[in-house]
Amino acid sequence: MIAPGFLDPGPVYLDAPFHYARFYGTTATYGQSWTYAYGSPAFVTGAVVGNLVGNGIARARAENLAQAQWREFAYARVVVTPTTTWCCVDGRWLPFAHDAALEFVIDGPSCVLSFADVEPLRMSGPSAWCYAVMYAYARYGPRRWQEAPFLHPLREAVRSLAMH
């Protein structure tokens, strides 16, 4: 792969494809419909009830769409440098500074980073554990990377293998 132009000649710890997503809520609107019905009482009642049900469904759909959830699903090229995780999404390079991350969680084949000022970032794929190790190395340094709390499952797996 060709190195992005913004990278300095320093080390690159990882350059791999991932599934990318962000977690946030949004504003969703819906159109309230009105029905004018003329006819028998049963017909008018049916039209009013149908209109109420339709508006209720539209409102529930809008509320569901507005809830905080994983969004912006895309494939991303991820480049990890000593200070930043760079994600190329739809041709745009997005920087995520390692020292700005408040939390790093491994959830199965996904790594989730939480930040104070931007929406959480989830990167999933076969390289997730490799990313976790490279992120720990970049964040904690060559002497303390193995102590990263999110690497505990990996330490336990290695310990289990060593005992057999």
Results as ranks from 00 to 15, higher is better:
39 G>E: 11
39 G>N: 09
45 T>L: 14
47 A>F: 02
53 V>T: 13
54 G>P: 01
56 G>W: 08
58 A>M: 02
62 A>E: 03
63 E>F: 07
65 L>R: 08
65 L>A: 14
66 A>L: 10
67 Q>V: 07
68 A>W: 10
69 Q>N: 13
71 R>L: 06
74 A>T: 13
75 Y>V: 07
76 A>S: 08
79 V>F: 00
80 V>T: 04
83 T>K: 08
83 T>N: 08
84 T>D: 05
86 W>D: 01
87 C>E: 01
89 V>S: 02
90 D>E: 14
91 G>A: 10
96 F>M: 12
97 A>C: 06
101 A>M: 11
102 L>H: 09
102 L>Y: 06
105 V>R: 11
105 V>A: 11
106 I>P: 00
106 I>Y: 02
106 I>T: 10
108 G>R: 08
109 P>L: 06
111 C>S: 04
113 L>P: 00
119 E>A: 15
121 L>R: 01
122 R>G: 01
123 M>K: 02
123 M>E: 04
123 M>T: 07
124 S>A: 15
125 G>L: 03
128 A>L: 03
130 C>N: 05
130 C>K: 04
131 Y>T: 00
131 Y>K: 00
131 Y>D: 00
134 M>C: 14
137 Y>M: 11
142 P>L: 14
142 P>N: 15
144 R>M: 09
146 Q>I: 09
147 E>K: 09
152 H>F: 13
154 L>Y: 05
155 R>L: 13
155 R>M: 13
